[in-house]
C-alpha cells in the first residue's frame, strides 16, 4: 500500500482481493471521503463491491465479474472494461466504465448513475429499479428486461427485444433499435422527458442532444390479465 499526497494506491499483485475490498469498505464506513487507486486489477472478480460510504476509487485496468456491486455513495471508475454484472444492485453513487461493460450491467440497480463510455452487451439494466444508466455506445439484446423504474439512455443502437415485459422504466435510444420486446412501445417525448434526458446527458458528460433520442416505455398491456387470452392457457 502506497499513500501519495491525495490517494492511496493498492497494488493487486501485492495484495489479495479480500484485503483490497476490506480496506476500501473500512474507508467507506469511516465516511472520510478518501481516494484510492487500484493498480494491476488483472480482471479480478468482485472488485470494490459493497462500498457504503463516500469514497473515490479508480481501478487502473479491466475488471471481472461483479465490479462495484451494491455500491452506495461511492464513486468507482474503471479505466478499462468491466466483466459481467458491473454495478449490480447499485443503490447510489456513480460508477463509470471507460471501456465496455459485459452482460447484465446495472442489473436490479436501485439508484445512482452507471456511466458506460463504451458498449454494454446483453441484458443491460435487466430488472432495474431506479438506477440511471447511460451507455455512450450500443447495448445488446434483452436490455431493460422487466425494468421497473429509472432511466436507461443509449447513445448508440439497441439489440433485439429491448424492454421486454417492461414496467415503468424510461428508455431513451438515439440510434436504431433492432426489435422491441413484448409490451414495449415507442412513446412521445414530452418536455419533462427532454429535461430528464438533458440532465442525465450532462451528468454523464455525453455529447448528444436530448431531441435526437426516441423514448420507449411500457404499453401497460401486461399489467392485467386479458380475458380474451384465456384460451391461450
Amino acid at each position: 500500500m502506497t499513500t501519495t499526497l491525495d490517494k492511496t494506491v493498492l497494488d493487486m499483485t501485492a495484495m489479495e482481493l479480500r484485503e483490497v475490498n476490506t480496506t476500501l469498505q473500512a474507508a467507506a464506513k469511516a465516511q472520510a471521503n478518501a481516494a484510492f487507486e487500484i493498480i494491476n486489477p488483472r480482471g479480478s472478480h468482485a472488485m470494490a463491491c459493497g462500498l457504503d460510504g463516500p469514497l473515490d476509487v479508480t481501478i487502473k485496468g479491466s475488471t471481472g465479474y461483479y465490479c462495484a456491486g451494491m455500491n452506495k455513495d461511492a464513486t468507482v471508475t474503471v479505466e478499462g472494461s468491466a466483466g459481467p454484472g458491473v454495478a449490480e444492485n447499485m443503490m447510489s453513487g456513480v460508477v463509470t466504465i471507460e471501456g465496455d461493460a459485459s452482460q447484465y450491467a446495472g442489473a436490479t440497480g436501485h439508484g445512482g448513475l452507471l456511466n458506460i463510455k463504451g458498449n454494454a452487451s446483453s441484458r443491460c439494466g435487466i430488472s432495474m429499479k431506479g438506477i440511471d444508466i447511460v451507455v455512450h455506445g450500443n447495448i445488446g439484446h434483452m436490455s431493460a428486461f422487466m425494468a421497473q423504474s429509472g432511466n436507461l439512455v443509449v447513445l448508440g443502437d439497441a439489440g433485439d427485444a429491448l424492454g421486454d415485459s417492461l414496467y415503468e422504466a424510461r428508455l431513451f435510444v438515439r440510434g436504431n433499435v433492432k426489435s422491441l420486446g413484448a409490451d414495449c412501445i415507442k412513446k412521445e417525448m414530452r418536455p419533462e422527458h427532454i429535461e430528464i434526458l438533458k440532465e442525465l446527458l450532462e451528468k454523464a458528460g455525453a455529447d448528444a442532444k436530448p431531441e435526437e433520442f426516441t423514448r420507449y416505455g411500457s404499453a401497460r398491456k401486461l399489467y392485467n390479465f386479458n380475458i380474451d387470452h384465456a384460451d391461450e392457457y
Binding site: R42, G43, H45, S62, T63, G64, G83, D100
Partner: peptide, 17 residues
C-alpha cells in the same frame, strides 16, 4: 474471462471485445 489475458504480452494495448 478477461483474467486469462492478464499475462499476455501487450494486452494493455490490445483491442479487447
Amino acid at each position: 474471462e478477461y483474467r486469462a489475458f492478464a499475462d499476455l504480452p501487450g494486452i494493455e494495448a490490445a483491442r479487447v471485445w
